[in-house]
Design a protein around this nucleic acid. Structure first.
Lengths: 122, 122, 122, 122
DNA sequence: GTGGTCTAGACCACG
DNA sequence: GTGGTCTAGACCACT
């Protein structure tokens, strides 16, 4: 059973969905450090997707330090995700700030946003 | 002095930047209802961009109900922006929620987000 | 008091609105045969519209046999509108047929269209 | 044999003819949901029309919910056409009503219109 | 002068 | 190969 799902009808590129998906699984601990990922071919077959697309996603994940690849052995979740985690956090903080700024500009009140925030921790 | 600035090097398409830019100016009231926009050619010249690109942005703004265009007379901010405003607000609320959810997933604390929220109303 | 109104925000050309408007007034008898129309300049001033636009509408109306113009005297409703009336009727019958055909193609039932027809004679 | 024909001499824009044409094919079921449309380039070549014009038509069809386009994969008929169908029906009913109203105004009798209606179901 | 349509040809990211 | 964006330059109808 694969934990990865992609939406072929989405406008966001498949390789991007893949990258995002695996990053989330790794940073949230669902995929453990040093755990092996499915092979490019296996995942391509499983998701009915072009192997090139999987390859591209894996390459980006390696560049981001989320996974590492051993030739002829396969791809594995990095054992040290702290760098990736902190940069992901920085990015997330940034998106929140941007979203809040945009909302404020459109006249949404601070109270309403507070309510939105509380709702997620309900 | 034009209120519109474009980054031709950005990944987001020029016409999309234009659309977003003008939408903001209209919804925040900086451009008043029924105010005339610069002509397609004039803005194209001003921003050093092809007229077709401006045209495309204006066409999208018109179908969004942000502006209306009268051939041979010019383009104008819509007199009734309520529909556009409410849908923009809904979208903004949504992206705040998504950003918060993503941040929570990465282990960012509620307090830290609260701090981010307060910072915008400083 | 002018019986003519135009919608400057409409996408159908002003001269076309004018032509349609006057044709209707003439064929339905609201404007009597040989009745004088307002002068180009007067109507232009009254409707706050470019005189060229009025001129163009009058020219088309004359071409259609709806009005006739006497140099230095003005424009008048034709005394014999039968030709114009019958061609307008033919055109109207045609639009009805086309609209019905289109509706049928979209799966609207004969009964529903009958209901629409009855509603106009209610 | 393509099911799509275009009249380049018509007053109605080519992209509009295309939009109307494909909408009809989709709503009447001749093109099945999720069926792939010809590629922008292929259709352009087939109809001897510039690819940009096809692109514009496809873009409009997409925002109308008639088709969806996946970059690098192609364009397809929407799987859910109910919204588009109902709005098309509303529009059709409206134009039937308008046509009937206009006909009545010109003195065409109810009986004659009834005859027109019956003729389509002959 | 205005907006709108169209052609021709280029380049990009994606699969 | 696909859809999508952009430029350059032309032409149209309308005011």
């Amino acid at each position: 059973m694969s934990k990865i799902t992609i939406d072929v009808k989405s406008r966001t590129p498949i390789f991007e969905q893949l990258r995002h998906n695996i990053t989330e699984l790794a940073l949230s601990g669902i995929l453990a450090p040093d755990e092996q990922l499915p092979s490019v071919r296996a995942l391509a077959c499983d998701l009915a997707i072009n192997p090139n697309t999987i390859q591209k996603a894996y390459a980006e994940l390696e560049r981001d330090g989320i996974i590492y690849s051993l030739p002829a052995r396969g791809s594995f979740i990095s054992s040290d995700l702290s760098a990736a985690a902190s940069s992901a956090k920085a990015e997330a903080r940034n998106s929140v700030s941007n979203a809040i700024r945009q909302a404020k500009l459109l006249g949404i009140s601070k109270e309403e946003l507070l309510e939105l925030l509380n709702r997620e921790w309900r």
